[in-house]
């Protein structure tokens, strides 16, 4: 299994990660070896095996649809890199 530098760039874009050009080759080598390791899974026969998502096979718990949280807007927004009038600021999306 090998992931080309082009594929690495595509994956990095999907993951929204900027990767410097000089590091692409290294990531390509590393991801290729990781998937080489991962492909050892292919040797296992798993046709009739139920996939396991939770160790106790628990189902997602639901709660009543009632308000449980108090308003902490200011506290929660205190970590925002850029904000104004209680809103998060991002670069312009529409011209």
């Amino acid at each position: 299994m090998s992931l080309s530098p082009e594929e690495v760039k595509k994956i990095a874009y999907l993951a929204r990660l900027s990767i410097e050009e000089e590091h692409v080759e290294q990531y390509s080598e590393d991801l290729s070896s990781i998937f080489g390791l991962v492909e050892q899974m292919n040797a296992a026969a798993t046709d009739d095996i139920e996939p396991m998502a939770h160790p106790q096979n628990a189902m997602q718990r639901l709660r009543d649809d009632v308000v449980t949280e108090t308003n902490q807007r200011d506290k929660l927004m205190a970590n925002a890199p850029l904000k104004e009038d209680g809103l998060f600021l991002v670069p312009k999306v529409l011209d």
Binding site: V8, I11, A12, R16, L17, S18, Y27, D30, I34
Partner: peptide
């Protein structure tokens, strides 16, 4: 892209890309 690319270290980026793929 740059916030994540500059904010995360190499191993974290490696694992995010592995998982994304």
């Amino acid at each position: 892209m740059r916030s994540r690319g500059e904010g995360f270290g190499t191993e974290v980026k490696r694992r995010i890309m592995t998982g994304t793929y």
